[in-house]
């Protein structure tokens, strides 16, 4: 690894100040869990001159339910998500998504914020949060701003974060608390797998009519960034919940997906996985909805 200067931020305000100070003159990177950053820097000839360590900003490490919804601090680790009673109860899909990230060691280090900020299209926390219409709360020198996750990602490894901003919190809005959601991932093996495709599906059930209400589908690894499946969502809205409808939504989601072919899988195979995983994720969310009734 190349040499760099390290500054330790005491809290998120300090972090933003350090970023503002150094980003004008240096190439700056933020380190939290380090699982992505350090792995990237080890064999890279390009290196930041300055690294700002935000891992000690303890105010970004809590999971709380407020009037605004469920707030997850950006420094909450994947292990913390898995063990959070609130999340286990409200969103087992988030627990499942966290569980598929890396392995125990990386889940203990890696943070939700880090997973999102890295903006790799195959990120495992993205699809479920997308399906839950999560909002990114961003800390800048002037304070906080909130941006829907849909607008947070710009492309592979690109987000709207400015040089002097950090992701502070993820907010799942109040209206979606407890919304039945299911996450599925397909990788090349079971342990420590990168997603070929991952899917988060979420909807409310109109109990009288047994129809889909506010269906949302998040897809990972099938576009330059985590995306929604708008056509599949539109197809399901208000439709009666049947296995055929879920299968058809899967097929439509496959047309929403714009995957590439690479050495891990072909685009065509990824589209098939989108269809199968979307169908199964909808089934999983429906099973959860029924179990909750």
């Amino acid at each position: 690894m190349r040499a760099f200067d390290l500054y330790v931020a005491k809290d998120s305000r300090d972090a933003v100040m350090l970023l503002a100070k150094h980003s004008a003159t240096s190439k700056v990177k933020v380190i939290a869990g380090g699982t992505d950053l350090l792995a990237d820097l080890k064999f890279s000839a390009h290196s930041p001159n300055v690294v700002v360590d935000i891992s000690r900003a303890d105010e970004l490490k809590s999971i709380t339910v407020t009037d605004g919804g469920l707030r997850i601090g950006a420094l909450v680790t994947h292990s913390q998500i898995m063990k959070s009673p609130v999340i286990q109860q409200m969103f087992p899909a988030l627990v499942d998504a966290a569980h598929t990230i890396g392995a125990v060691q990386t889940r203990n280090l890696g943070t939700l914020g880090g997973n999102l900020v890295t903006a790799v299209p195959s990120m495992d926390s993205g699809p479920t949060l997308m399906a839950l219409e999560a909002i990114a709360s961003i800390q800048g020198p002037g304070g906080r701003r909130e941006v829907p996750l849909t607008d947070f990602f710009l492309g592979p490894r690109k987000t709207i974060l400015k040089a002097d901003e950090i992701l502070a919190e993820i907010i799942i809005p109040k209206q979606n608390l407890g919304k039945p959601t299911h996450f599925l991932k397909f990788g090349l093996r079971k342990g420590q797998a990168l997603a070929l495709v991952n899917v988060g599906a979420s909807f409310w059930v109109d109990a009288k009519k047994n129809t889909f209400v506010a269906p949302r589908i998040g897809l990972g690894a099938v576009a330059p960034k985590v995306i929604h499946a708008p056509q599949a969502e539109a197809y399901l809205e208000g439709r009666e919940i049947t296995p055929e409808a879920m299968a058809e939504a899967g097929r439509i989601a496959a047309t929403d997906a714009k995957p590439i072919s690479d050495f891990r899988a072909s685009a065509g195979y990824r589209k098939n996985l989108v269809a199968v995983l979307t169908k199964r994720a909808l089934e999983g969310a429906y099973a959860l909805a029924q179990a909750k009734r």
């Binding site: 898995m82 627990v95 499942d96 569980h99 991932k185 397909f186 990788g187 079971k190 797998a193 199964r280």
Partner: peptide, 15 residues
């Protein structure tokens, strides 16, 4: 069928 693995919390993760 869904391929399942049991996780630490007893939840089911479908991979």
């Amino acid at each position: 069928k869904l391929l399942e693995k049991e996780n630490v919390n007893g939840n089911t993760v479908r991979v």
